[in-house]
């Protein structure tokens, strides 16, 4: 028996919008600690890791660890039927091949339930160890989205370089080149407008802009985004979900051969 009641149902709607284009089918794992997901895109280049901690739900009951395979496109269709202010409850019974999403309007005068078929998904789960990164950039998520969108109109790949001067996003395409440099800026009115660069060592990595732009669909989940870079590792692009957890995207770099 599983029953997860999320008062801020819009968070789940936003999560689905953020990940459904990257991953078609995924197993949602439910345990006493929270509701989570890890899934790779079909080409094994990008991975999404979602965590919604149990404490973030108004009511959280998960009698035993359960994995529920869902088609994210279909789940998104159902969650789009929930209002932005609705309370969303996810319900499941042991051994059942369906999951139910219940939507309650804030005034309790409209209650809907949508039952979705589950599916068996043979998903590969990767062990991602904690790592020390050479550089961590925290910046406004809207600024990161703007940069990725702008650069994608010029080129296909972005080189992200962190030095003590700042963080540089560069691209090159048939029509020319583009470089955008952000300097550390902590003298802002609101902390979420700051750009903070923590650098242990300079680092420069190349990534496909198509995936970066897909990650920025999570922009509405968080005012800030954290980009962790190491020359030996995939980049981690993390959007915190207020007091609940995170959506993290991992992207393997491109290398010169």
């Amino acid at each position: 028996m599983l029953e997860l009641r999320l008062v801020q149902g819009s968070l789940l709607k936003k999560v689905l919008e953020a990940i459904k284009d990257l991953v078609n089918d995924a197993n949602f794992d439910c345990s006493s600690s929270g509701f989570s997901l890890q899934a790779m895109d079909s080409s094994h280049v990008a991975l999404v890791a979602l965590l919604l901690r149990a404490e973030g739900f108004e009511h959280y009951r998960c009698d035993r660890n359960t994995s529920m395979g869902m088609n994210l496109g279909n789940m998104s269709k159902m969650l789009k039927c929930a209002g932005n202010d609705d309370i969303i409850t996810i319900k499941g019974d042991d051994g059942s091949d369906t999951v139910t999403f219940m939507f309650e309007s804030p005034t309790q005068d409209k209650i809907a339930d949508f039952e979705m078929k589950l599916m068996d998904i043979d998903s590969e789960h990767l062990g991602i160890p904690e790592a020390e990164y050479q550089a961590i950039v925290t910046m406004p998520s809207s600024e990161f989205a703007r940069i990725c969108k702008d650069l994608a109109s010029i080129g296909d790949t972005v080189v992200i370089s962190v030095t003590k001067e700042g963080v540089k996003f560069s691209t090159r395409g048939d029509i020319g080149t583009a470089n955008i440099v952000l300097r550390q800026n902590t003298t802002v009115d609101k902390p979420e407008d700051a750009t903070v660069i923590e650098m242990n060592e300079p680092v420069s990595l190349t990534f496909a802009l198509r995936y970066m732009n897909s990650f920025t669909k999570a922009t509405s989940l968080s005012n800030t985004v954290k980009i962790s870079l190491s020359s030996e590792l995939p980049v981690v692009v993390e959007y915190k979900i207020a007091e609940m957890g995170y959506v993290r995207f991992y992207l393997a770099p491109k290398i010169e051969e």
Binding site: M40, S43, H44, V45, A46, L47, E124, H125, L126, G127, I128, T157, T206, A208, L233, P234, Y250, A252, P253, K254, I255, E256, E257
Partner: peptide, 14 residues
């Protein structure tokens, strides 16, 4: 020539 690496080259199956 740029080559796109895969995540499975960095992380093991758990």
């Amino acid at each position: 020539k740029r080559v796109q690496l895969k995540l499975t080259e960095f992380y093991q199956s758990a």
